[in-house]
Amino acid sequence: MRRFKEFIIEKLVFLSGILVILFVCLIFVFLLKEGLSFFKDVKLSAFLLGKYWYPISEPPRFGILPLILGSLFVTLGAVLFAVPLSIGAAFYVAEIAPARIRDFLKTGIEILASIPSVVLGFVGMITLVPWIKAIFHVPTGLTALAGSIMLGFMAMPTIISISEDAITAVPRQYKEGSIALGATRWQTMYRVTIHAAKPGIIAACMLGVGRVIGETMAVMMITGNAAVIPRTFLQPVRTLTATIAAEMGEVVHGSAHYHALFSIGIILFLITFMINITADFFLHRVRTK
């Protein structure tokens, strides 16, 4: 009897491992099932490169180029300022801060990472958006810039925390060797440590980017949601995620619009899948070294 029970539980443990693979496959299959029938009516190139997203006009137009560019603009802006700041901060936490402050900072950063995005979006809407409007004299503060700034802050804890692990994992001998040769602390960080920690830092940035691209609530609240091709950061944009979030609730089940939203889901899934593969590749290099 006992044997039998053990056998059952062991199989269950095995099964739950497999179940995760099954879930990821199921997600993808369901997205494909709902999304692919869209391409019977609309060509892939017209979908990806179409300049107009008018899903409920007559005839409807389903071009997601403005949405892709919207996501890219917001992500690019967030990366441009979050990555250097985060790497700097990670170096401070790992190499310069005294031990006691380091523990405090590490915990603080990880706790700040759990601020819900809807709260960040709300704060951004009330504070950041009017500031942008006043500073840049633009008609509305709901812009790609606002989204970039808020999402940058959202990505920072992720990037700092993983980069910091990578920097701490660099063997002490490397740093000591460099210091022994007479290099200053900065030269050691800049010439030695960062190279040794590079794969981990790149993986950290990739995961940060993944978080930004997949973010929905904050961007929906502060980027203005205008589906036009952006030319500058001071224009309203609409991202892939915000489009699904805003339109899924009202769409007619089974319509072309419904299938188009699932096709956007496929694209999002593929983008984050690629990002994760790359991050995994770099993290794996850290482990095997």
């Binding site: 990821v24 979030a245 984050t272």
Partner: peptide, 28 residues
């Protein structure tokens, strides 16, 4: 090998945007 595959898909699942998981639950 299977363990490595499970580990990798766990990471992938972790990275899937929550909105995509939302539409998955919606169809299901």
């Amino acid at each position: 090998k299977l363990g490595a595959a499970v580990r990798f898909t766990t990471d992938v699942l972790n990275g899937v945007p929550s909105i995509v998981i939302g539409i998955f639950a919606y169809t299901l």
